[in-house]
Every structure is written in C-alpha cells, then in structure tokens.
Design a protein around this nucleic acid. Structure first.
Length: 492
DNA sequence: CTGGGGATGGGGCCC
DNA sequence: CGGGCCCCATCCCCA
C-alpha cells in the first residue's frame, strides 16, 4: 500500500526508528515514493504547494474551530468580552502568550485565562482574526490601537505591518503634499501575513523596536492588566504618518528628496546619516526652492502649521498611553509605568513618555535661532547654543589649553564661536571679537523666543534659509536675528 | 585604520 | 508637570 507524500512524511516523522518495524518500513517505502514524485513534479505537485495548501487548510480549520468554539482551551477576557481560542495558536503567535503559557508558576494549567483592559475588544478582534487568518484589517482609525495592542502582545509582525501601513500613509501624504498640499489617504487597507509566527527578522524590525518588554502578564483574570486606552482615537492617519517612524527610509528619502523636510519644520528630523553630516551647519533647501514664489512659501508655512497642529492633536488625543504594571514595590503595590505606543519602552511618568515620543514623531520644537538647527529638548538647544554659538567653553580650540574669560579670545566662524589662547591667536593670525558682543544679540532669552514664537508663523520666514540669506554662512558675528521681531524679519 | 574628542540624542530622576 | 541636571551611547571628524 502506498501513502501520499504528506502521509509519508507524517508517518516518517512518527516512526523515527525507520526500518526496525513494519510501520517504519512502510514509512520508508512511502518516503521513497515521495522522492520519486518530487523528482517528477509534473506527475505530482511540488512540496511547496503541499506546504502552502496544508498551511492554508490548517489555518482555515483552526479558524473554523475557533468560531465554533471547538477544542478551545483558552479564554481571553477583554473589557468584559470573552474570546475563545486555542492556546497553541496563541502561543505560536504572541510573545506575550508565550510567556503567559510557559512561565507560569504551576506549569501548564488545564485552562488558561487572560484578561486585558489595555485595549478594546474591537482591537483584539482584529488581532485574533489576524492570528487565525493572516489577514490584518487595518484602517486609519484603528492602526494605532492595533499597533499598541500588538506591542503589548509582543507580536512584532503585526507591529511591522502597522508601521508599514503608517509609512504607506506617509508616502501618500508626502506625495499629495508635494502636489497640492492636500492631505488625504486611503481609509483602509489590509495586510496579509506570510506566516503566523511573529517575525524576528531584524530587517522587519522598525527603528523603534527595542528590547522585549518586561513580563506583563497574569494568569488570573482577577489580576487583569491595569491600564487605560482611548476608545475613540479619531486620528487622521496622515497626521500619524507625519509624526510616526521618523527614521523610516521612506520618510527620509521621499521627504528629503523633495525638499520637503526643513530644519525649520517642527516635525523636522534629520535622517540618520544626514543628522551627523549637517552638524554645525545649516540645512539648505533644495536649490529650486529658492525660486519658489512667495505664494508657495505661504503654502509651505500653512502646511507646517498644519503639521504642528496635527502633532498637537495627536498628543491631545493620543490614546495608547498605556498604563501597565511594571513591577511590584516592597509593599506589594503595583508600580504603574507608561508604555510607548510605538515601541516597547516604558517610563515612570507620562511626561517622560511625552518626551520619549518625540524620538518617534520627529518633532523638534526647539529651533536654534542662530543656525536653524532644531532640537527635541530645550536643554539640548541650550547646550548646543552655549557650545557652538556662545563660546562658553573656556578651552582653546587649537591647543586645548585652559583659558579664562580674559585670556580666551573669542573667534567667530560663521555663527560658530570658540575661544583661542593668545598664542594660538597670534599664530593663526585671526582676529578675536570683543567679549562684550558675546551676550548681546545671542543671549538666551532671545534665543528662546523662537520656541513659542514659531507657531506665530512670522518667524518661520527666517527658517527658509536660501542662498541669499543663509544665516549660517553670512550672518557672521551679527546675529541680529536674535532680536526677534517677526514683522521685520518677515520683510528681510 | 584607529583612537580620542566633540556634538548630539535619549533615559532616569530630582526639584 | 515642566525644567533641569546627570549620565551614557552613538555618530562623526580629525589627527
């Protein structure tokens, strides 16, 4: 009796001691047939077809069983709604469930119950449907919640699909922004998974992927996950796209190539390599942008304002600031931590999370008025300004010797200022500038004017550095721009 | 090619 | 909760 190749494989696997028993001999014969069949694919079908067909069929069967609640040995309670599933499927799909099912104190129990308040039943439905079908039903309205839930459940493949969804939305946004400054995107799209196992392929890991989160699980529904999540994000995915995954190559290349990324942009983020390359200088706009009309500039300003507003909107409506129990303190009270919706990072304070989010959104609210470089934090701006533009370091730049306010002569190089000792000054033959001018136009209060003033729109005129008014190159020691007068600056 | 230093970014935590 | 400080990691430039 001959077996089919699939049966042969199964038989062979179940009878490892091939040849020592009848079953083993039968398996061996069947396996021989399989080899023959595979060598003549036109007579049979190749193994890849078998595998795919088998996987599809198996997944379909499992999904049917789930829907009919057949053999379900796992209950998941999400905000009061009960979901039945198979623990082996959940185990294979989610790092969270892997930990839940393997690291429990009592080994594998007969039934497993998990409860979540960190996401909605609708979100978990999307996740569960994906687990059992490979189809991820994403839309602009649920992508953040799904991504947050996937992050919570440690499903890297879903996270990556969500990132791709957001990135694709970004592409659409950028292209449309380039053409008619109009933001829109497709409302829904569906991603198909190639495999149910969550991906650990580093290439699929987004730039915001970090180390696995701490074990945040419970095997007792009474110890449900504490936390909260917005129920109605109402988020424009285009806004999310503009703010999400700033390091994505798509974002960088498309935006930068089109000259759309501007250091003046509150959401501006330097690409990984560009970030370093542009240090100490001013990122110029594309040459052709110099010839853009005033009308176009106004459109650009309007677009930036829209971006800033959307950033604020995102922060205001940001639902997935998920409070999670990080660990228990000495009094056995849960210590709440806040989880980033874009990665697995958790922080103690919501304010820290907001600060952390800037590394995902690319928001840089603190522009340097001297060189237009933008920073995510005021302290970074201040540090940069003191170091680069105020020559606060009492070290000779040439010979590295210690100098004082008196002996360290300030040398100006564009907007950059540094100190040199008397000997080096004479050796180089350059001129120092009076110390008095250091705290003149470049004093900090003026510097910081741009932080809040940027939203007024007028100061943005100075952000659009072109060949004619490149501050970094031409302003020299006369950094008058610190005397922020929006109306005057607009006219310059 | 390599190591040191500068500039920058990001996390933790205190005030 | 924002501001600020400290610390560390990373990247880049330069000798």
């Amino acid at each position: 009796m001959e077996n089919s190749p699939v049966e042969a494989l199964a038989l062979a696997r179940s009878a490892p001691v091939v040849g020592r028993c009848a079953v083993g001999r039968r398996a061996l014969r069947s396996l021989h047939c399989l080899v023959v069949f595979c060598r003549q694919p036109q007579r049979w079908f190749n193994t890849a077809d078998i595998t795919v067909a088998h996987q599809n069929n198996l997944l379909k069967q499992l999904n049917q069983q789930r829907r009919q609640e057949l053999f379900c040995d796992c209950s998941v309670l999400v905000e009061g709604q009960l979901f039945r599933a198979h623990r082996n499927v959940l185990f294979a799909s989610s790092g969270y469930f892997r930990m839940l099912l393997t690291q429990g104190p009592d080994g594998l129990p007969d039934t497993v119950n998990a409860a979540f308040d960190a996401f909605t039943p609708e979100t978990f439905t999307v996740i569960l449907d994906f687990i059992y079908s490979g189809q991820l039903d994403l839309s602009s309205h649920n992508v953040i919640e799904v991504m947050s839930a996937a992050s919570y459940l440690q499903m890297n493949n879903v996270i990556n699909y969500c990132k791709n969804f957001i990135k694709s939305s970004l592409d659409i946004s950028v292209k449309e922004e380039d053409s008619d400054r109009c933001l829109s995107l497709s409302e829904t799209c569906s991603f198909t998974s190639g495999a149910g196992e969550d991906s650990t392929d580093p290439q699929q890991q987004g730039p915001c992927s970090v180390s696995p989160p701490p074990a945040l699980w419970t095997r007792d529904s009474s110890l449900s996950q504490s936390g909260f999540i917005g129920k109605d994000p109402e988020q424009d995915a285009s806004a999310l796209a503009l703010k999400t995954n700033p390091n994505s190559p798509t974002n960088e290349v498309s935006a930068d190539a089109d000259g759309l990324q501007d250091p003046q942009d509150p959401l501006y983020t330097l690409p990984g390599s560009e970030r370093r390359r542009s240090r100490g200088g001013t990122k110029r706009r594309a040459p052709n942008s110099n010839r853009s009309s005033q009308h176009e500039d106004l459109d650009v300003l309007e677009t930036r304002t829209q971006k800033a507003e959307k950033a604020e909107e995102l922060y205001a409506t940001l639902p997935p600031i998920v409070g999670v129990i990080g660990h228990f303190n000495k009094d056995s009270n849960p210590v709440m931590r806040f989880k980033c919706p874009f990665c697995t990072h958790t922080v103690k304070r919501k304010a820290d999370l907001k600060r952390h989010l800037r590394c995902h959104t690319g928001e840089r609210p603190y522009p340097c008025q001297a060189c237009n470089k933008r920073f995510t934090r005021l302290e970074h701006l201040r540090s940069h300004f003191e170091t680069i533009h105020q020559a606060r370091k009492l070290v000779c730049r040439k010979c590295k010797c210690q100098v004082t306010e008196e002996t360290g002569h300030v040398v100006c190089e564009g907007t950059r200022r540094y100190r040199m000792c008397t000997a080096c000054i004479q050796e180089v033959g350059c001129e120092s500038i009076p110390i008095d001018s250091l705290d003149g136009p470049l004093d900090e209060p003026a510097l910081l004017l741009g932080v809040n003033g940027e939203e007024e729109g007028d100061t943005k005129r100075s952000w659009m550095v072109n060949d004619d008014d490149d501050l970094a190159e031409d302003s020299g020691t006369d950094l008058i721009i610190q005397q922020v007068d929006d109306s005057d600056e607009e006219l310059q």
